[in-house]
């Protein structure tokens, strides 16, 4: 195979993120994290609760500035917000006063697209996330899974080159998560965007991603492992979990992750006792 150098979509180079808490104390959330996501690559970040996975994602989005280190997007240093990225938030981020179709169309409208055209494209995206008939509903009339679908359409209609996802399926039930996972893979296969997907669920990470990155427990979380997932594509989330290769990889990664999860758990219970 010819060596084609794929452009690196997201590159974090020794990024350190610190917050000022209560006066002069400084809390270091992430310490010297280096990570790169190639164009078209699906990378999942897994770590114990509160380890700073979302922080890392916010750095890649440009919502947070690292205290030290560099962020490069397609080989350009990132200044301000990452305009190449679409961000799917963990919490509800839809505009509650807009209908589903208006929520999706807004991404084009603010770029100056004519409303009729924006609505037509939005309808197309709603249909591809399976909500073609729900355009006139307001977010509160939709279920949690449906809101995530609208959120996905809202992000994808702008055709971002990079997709940042912060435990997007976290609040959903197990069945809906699998359906959403398959939907995501299906949409991603159509035009491979670079994806940075944060989750606390190792199984979900292996089933979806090309690479799984493990973070240590915070504070001062580091990246402590990086595994390639060689499972063939296209994958079906529920079927891929039955495969032997999946189990071996899961066991291997879990042996590392387990210690961090216990550490993170001990720290959070200590913190709870101290307060």
């Amino acid at each position: 195979m010819a060596d084609i150098v794929e452009p690196v979509a997201v590159a974090l180079d020794n990024a350190t993120v610190a917050f000022r808490v209560a006066g002069d104390r400084v809390y270091t959330a992430v310490e010297r994290a280096s990570l790169s996501v190639a164009h078209g690559e699906f990378v999942a970040i897994v770590g114990p609760t509160g380890c700073g996975k979302s922080t890392l994602l916010n750095v890649a989005a440009g919502l947070l500035k690292p205290a030290a280190g560099a962020v490069r997007i397609f080989d350009q240093p990132l200044n301000g917000l990452n305009r190449d990225a679409g961000y799917l938030f963990q919490a509800d981020a839809l505009f509650p006063w807009k209908t589903a179709i208006d929520n999706v169309a807004i991404g084009l409208e603010i770029k100056g697209a004519p409303r009729a055209m924006a609505l037509e494209r939005a309808q197309g995206w709603l249909t591809s996330v399976g909500l073609g008939a729900f355009g006139t509903r307001y977010p509160h009339m939709l279920s949690g899974g449906q809101r995530k679908r609208v959120g996905l359409a809202q992000v994808l209609i702008r055709d971002p080159k990079i997709l940042l996802m912060d435990e997007p399926f976290g609040p959903l039930d197990a069945q809906t998560r699998q359906i959403m996972g398959n939907l995501l893979l299906e949409l991603w296969t159509a035009d491979r965007k670079a994806v940075l997907f944060v989750t606390h669920d190792l199984e979900e990470a292996i089933a979806l991603a090309d690479r799984v990155v493990i973070m240590s427990a915070g504070p001062g979380a580091r990246i402590i492992g990086d595994w390639k997932v060689a499972l063939p594509r296209p994958r079906d989330i529920s079927e891929v979990r039955m495969e032997k290769q999946f189990h071996e990889l899961h066991r291997e990664i879990w042996s590392v992750l387990k210690d961090e999860v216990m550490k993170g758990y001990a720290q959070s219970s200590q913190a709870a006792e101290a307060s």
Partner: peptide
């Protein structure tokens, strides 16, 4: 106004004026 909704608006590419019109004002 929910910070998540605001961040979402920013990530969707809204300028401060568009944030005012589509997020702050309806709220």
């Amino acid at each position: 106004v929910s910070t998540t909704v605001l961040d979402n608006g920013r990530m969707l590419g809204m300028s401060e004026r568009q944030l005012t019109r589509h997020v702050y004002w309806p709220s």
